[in-house]
Design a protein around this nucleic acid. Structure first.
Lengths: 199, 199, 199, 199
DNA sequence: CATGAATGAGTCTTCATTCAT
DNA sequence: AATGAATGAAGACTCATTCAT
């Protein structure tokens, strides 16, 4: 009677490999990361990775799915009762999401770039984006219902813009903009949108 | 016995190669673009490219500089006299910039990603970003002077946010968000910021 | 603490593995057959095969010996009493041998090819060939004694030729020549040799 | 004006590579031959071979075509006028064909084995075999017309058998049967077929 | 006895770069 | 100046073999 490797174990290893790959890809980029590099991070051999992922691309796709699954689970909480909380919440939201992907801005960008070529990935990321977007739309709508936000705004346009703003800040950080400045920009925009800056 | 490539002619060829490389990189990405591909676009041989650029990386850097130079030349025009024009201008600005880089979102993103590794490139892109940012700050400040925008806003934060928003929309488009939706988001955000959406 | 694999049981398993390997090698060829493939045919694990055979080559050699032993056991029966039976017998002989190796022409060819490199294998196959050849010589001689065949023929040459003919037909079948055509060729040759075709 | 590499040159190199590959494959077999080995025979680098052949398999297929073309060009000459010449001719024919493929029996066998998997190759070899077969049929028919061979023989069966015999002798030689014995077998069979051995 | 996860040497293949012409 | 044949370092992937359980 030999101890069988449970599915559990397999899943754990896969998860570890994915984590190591995320680190490698984040550091060196997909194309310049060698399978060997990823293996070394885990004190594994090249071959072992191939026991769990059929190819480098396959591994990358698994990372993408991993992220998508992870991100889709995130929900925009909407628990606040005063108009002033809207801005406060914006900060929390930003910080929250930042934590989820800390250090992996680059992998996210690579995924965006890669999605240009990979139909399946593109679909996945597009759907994720849609979901995030829907969340934002719903969130904005609720605030309208509550009377925290005016009725005659372009909810769809604004939702798109907020998602893009968040992504754009990731690019900014990659170029060296500080985390603080990045957050400051987010807050300033949310605040401005809520209050208006027109003189 | 080969006469050195010099002067006007040399510059022209270099420019052509850069253009071809931009197209290739935009289509296939830096790592997956072969020197041969670029050469073929120009009916040149691989070897010839090396007469003008020392390496593939060198060529990429030249593209970056090319873009930076190009982008730095762009100025935020500030010619409008009525408060209402601010939003109108936002549209023009967006369209203008879009034209400048049409189809090359990807190269821009690659540059951002690449800048993570390349000190020189990173510095260049950072400086460019700073310049764009300065322009936006300056622009906002002028509107404050004119009384089109309130005095007590976070100019720096907002400027950062607008630059990020623009970049983020590029990422959105790569994922399949339409050009129209992208523009709509931009306008909605500008409009909201100007007027405020607080109920 | 593992008891050694021994005796009857061990032999049985070895036999099973050899059979599975023959099938695999016949289908995919030696080099392209994976140990895993063989293991799967038996619902065994790769590791188990190594309990019985030291290496892939070792397994192949065992197959060769298996075949050689098997083939050496075959005898050319010589029970026929009339001259006309010679041709009839030729057919029986052919069919008999065909059954023994049905579907494994390829392994036989691989063995021939492999014997080019493997001294031990080559010796074994050469010896087997000699034995078959001797059988044929003996057989022909008997027919001479009986007066079924002329005395002044090149027994050795003919014997070699018949062995080669048999092998050559195997190659033919691998190229798509039908079993029927193959047999027809054998019979035609035997008949012609017996009767002569000279006008 | 740079010297263009003419198609002529390219063809020459290809031919050289094919020759080197034949030698390598004949010596080590397809699977165990490294591209590097082939390259070294020509004092070339691995990469160069890939300029002329897309892959190892491609190179092998080119060899096959090379052989097929070569073999198809061979014709069975039929110039002899006396019945006795038939046997004499058989020897010449054998020697002639032996020269054409000297040392490459193994590649031929590999081709046969490989054809099991490769549809295209199989078709080519089958067609070649058919052509050789047709030649033999035609040749036999001519001898019948001339009255050198009886009318009531199974021409098709005999033709198949002669082709197979030739191939089978190749296998024999690989196992260590001498060239002389091989030829002797051929001659004995031809002679027997012509004269009959029935007592 | 049996297992199958892990290993890493071995190969094919790619492609940036060089250089003789 | 331009070419494109040649190079060879680099890296993805395979699979025979080992060994802890």
């Amino acid at each position: 009677m030999c101890p069988k490797v449970t599915g559990q174990y397999k899943t754990e290893i896969k998860e570890k490999i994915i984590q190591a790959a995320i680190e490698s890809f984040a550091q060196t980029g997909f194309d310049r990361t060698k399978m060997e590099d990823i293996a070394k991070r885990l004190d594994l051999s090249k071959g072992t990775i191939y026991l769990y992922f059929a190819s480098k691309e396959d591994l990358f796709l698994a990372i993408c799915e991993h992220y998508l699954k992870f991100l889709k689970e995130q929900q925009l909480s909407t628990i606040f009762t005063r108009k002033e909380d809207v801005v406060l919440y914006a900060e929390h939201f930003y910080e929250n999401f930042r934590k989820l992907e800390r250090g992996n801005d680059r992998v996210m960008l690579e995924m965006v770039v890669e999605s240009t070529r990979n139909q399946k990935l593109r679909k996945g990321m597009y759907e994720h984006r849609l979901k995030v977007y829907d969340n934002v739309v719903e969130h904005l709508s609720k605030q309208i219902e509550r009377g925290f936000i005016k009725k005659d705004i372009d909810v769809n346009g604004l939702a798109s813009a907020f998602v893009a703003l968040y992504d754009g800040l990731a690019a900014s950080r990659m170029l060296g903009i500080s985390e603080a400045q990045s957050k400051k920009a987010w807050v300033a925009m949310v605040r401005a949108v809520m209050a208006g800056i027109g003189g």
